[in-house]
């Protein structure tokens, strides 16, 4: 966690000494003029100079703390992260995602940037080797990979599960290509994966999914493409291309129920790429498998 703490404003770093078990921490929430809050699996608490406290009694984060933290997180290079900032998040070394809130600047109706940043929502990424043990028999049957869509609301462990599926498929020798648009699956830093996605996985880092799928179909001879958070109609078209090329796909998308997901625009073309759907929740902790649906 040293690397994560180095991304914080010096003013905030000392507060984190009273976090006892970093393995349990899921989120860190910073809001301007509001208390610093930590979320662990089932609880939330604040941090102040005296240690852990009630959320409302946490250290009051000021505008300078937020501005400084953002500047450090962006490696003093805001220009290098324009696309991520436009999308409302940053990805830190280690794959941790930082959601950004502030004043949105529009140009011709499109988001140009975000200024006066007033909130940072840090979601910690972590490897959970074995997270996919329960689903692997569903994903590889008789030596064949079954194209699978993993569906859940945010925070239910989709990306963690996807990473471990990549690791396990890759370590079985399948030619895996991970299209990691937000650098969350492999957490590449200067092009090198920081999290284990297996020894036979290629990682296309920071690439929009639709373009990435077309690129890897042309050049990487994948047996399976792994990608996160399908959502744009173009993603659906690219997935359909992958299916037509005989390439299996393991992907995730946000949703709480299959009925709501199947109505999405990208499903019109992309739905045919999947043979099954795994629904996740956090009923018994992140990554709880609720249902496996076979698609016709």
């Amino acid at each position: 966690m040293d690397r994560l703490l180095k991304c914080m404003a010096p003013n905030l770093r000392n507060l984190f000494h009273s976090v006892l078990d970093w393995d349990k921490v899921e989120e860190i929430r910073l809001r301007v003029n509001q208390p610093l809050v930590i979320k662990e699996q089932q609880i939330e608490y604040g941090l102040n100079a005296a240690g852990r406290c009630r959320p409302s009694e946490g250290f009051r984060v000021n505008a300078d703390d937020i501005a400084r933290t953002v500047e450090i997180m962006a490696e003093n290079s805001w220009y290098a992260l324009e696309d991520e900032i436009r999308a409302g998040y940053l990805t830190l070394a280690g794959g941790h995602r930082v959601g950004i809130c502030g004043r949105v600047v529009l140009e011709n109706g499109l988001i140009k940037t975000i200024k006066y940043i007033n909130g940072l929502h840090i979601r910690l990424a972590r490897e959970v080797p074995g997270a996919a043990d329960q689903v692997m028999p569903q994903i590889v049957r008789s030596g064949r990979i079954i194209s699978t869509l993993i569906v859940s609301p945010p925070g239910c462990g989709k990306t963690t599960l996807l990473r471990d599926i990549s690791r396990q498929l890759s370590n079985r020798g399948f030619n895996v290509v991970v299209i990691d648009e937000r650098s969350e699956i492999a957490a590449c830093h200067h092009g090198v994966p920081q999290l284990d996605v297996g020894w036979s996985a290629y990682v296309l880092d920071g690439c929009p999914k639709a373009q990435g799928i077309a690129m890897v179909l042309r050049g990487m001879a994948p047996q399976v493409i792994i990608t996160d958070e399908i959502g744009h109609p173009n993603d659906g078209l690219a997935l359909a291309d992958a299916a037509r090329a005989g390439v299996q796909v393991i992907a995730t998308c946000h949703g709480s129920a299959w009925d709501s997901v199947r109505e999405r625009a990208w499903m019109r073309h992309g739905g045919a790429a999947f043979q099954q759907v795994i629904l996740l929740s956090r009923r018994s902790g992140p990554g709880t498998i609720e249902q496996v649906l076979k698609l016709d």
Binding site: E71, A74, N76, S77, W78, Y79, E82, K112, T113
Partner: peptide, 10 residues
């Protein structure tokens, strides 16, 4: 200003 705005501005 260095590093604090988009590429165009930099």
């Amino acid at each position: 200003v260095l590093g604090r705005s988009d590429a165009e501005d930099q």
